[in-house]
Amino acid sequence: MTPMPSPLTVAEPYLIQQDWQAYTPEQHAVWAELVSRRMPQLHEHACEEYLDGFQQIGLREDSIPDLAEVNRRLGPRTGWNATPVSGFLPPDAFFEMLGARKFPTTTWLRSRDSLEYTPEPDIFHDVFGHVPMHAHPVFADFLQHYGRVCFGLMHDKEKLEKMGRLFWFTVEFGVIRQKGKIRLYGSGLISSHGESSHLINSFKNGGAKSGAGPEIRDFNLDQVMHQQFLVSEMQKVLYAVESFDQIYEAAQEAERRLAD
């Protein structure tokens, strides 16, 4: 595998500081509304690890996170850091940061007229959706390993696309079976009321066979790495894991296969 550059040589131009004091009362109110819309559903349907992480890193329901405070709690647990960036990163910078246990975090927040959806990730998607899972040791190890593998594949677009599908169906749209039920852990489900309701309502209406929601398949690395998807549509297929060890092992297995 290609060695990771140290320090962050590729990502460094995109790193910024969060000016937490600059957020307005209206922005904090928008955050509070976004969280209040999601938490009742998540308390019932999110995985245990997400809900534990939310508490462990000290996220609040009434104000935008101060990333310095989040990192003060998160760092001692798994070594991860929610690192402010200026916006979308090129792939090599993104993977470099993951490999260094630094999660690229935007600092802007959507406006009130975009509560339901924003095409560009904001601090709500990045922190509320992603960062609580970084407090879980196995998930944290998986995500770092994923970043390091992808950084080493920057020369091979086809292999990188396969790894991108692994990210999509785990980090973004992952579900896990816990106590006989499907629970959410992917940030695209956690942070989106529409996507998660699309899934949850299908439980009550006969699932994908009724046309009510996505098909839930057992996680299969071969299928995941070849599964097509559209960012602009509700997901038609999701892959359920039995544990987070399973996705860490899948990343290691994907590395072995793509090295051949």
Rank of each mutant, 00 (worst) to 15 (best):
P3W: 07
P5L: 09
T9A: 11
L15W: 02
L15V: 14
A22W: 06
H28T: 09
V30E: 01
W31T: 01
R37L: 11
R38Q: 15
H43Q: 13
H45Q: 06
H45W: 11
S63H: 10
R72W: 02
R77E: 13
W80A: 12
A82W: 03
T83C: 13
P84E: 01
P91L: 09
P91G: 01
P104K: 07
P104V: 10
P104C: 13
W108L: 02
R110Y: 09
S114L: 14
Y117L: 09
F128P: 01
H134N: 12
A140L: 10
F142Q: 12
Q144E: 15
G147D: 03
V149M: 14
M154Q: 14
H155F: 01
H155L: 03
K157R: 13
K157W: 00
K159L: 05
I176C: 00
G180W: 00
K181Y: 00
R183Y: 02
G194S: 09
E195P: 09
F203Q: 00
P214S: 11
R217A: 13
N220H: 13
D222C: 01
F229V: 00
L230P: 00
L230A: 10
S232Y: 05
K236D: 13
A240H: 04
S243D: 10
S243V: 06
A250V: 14
A254T: 13
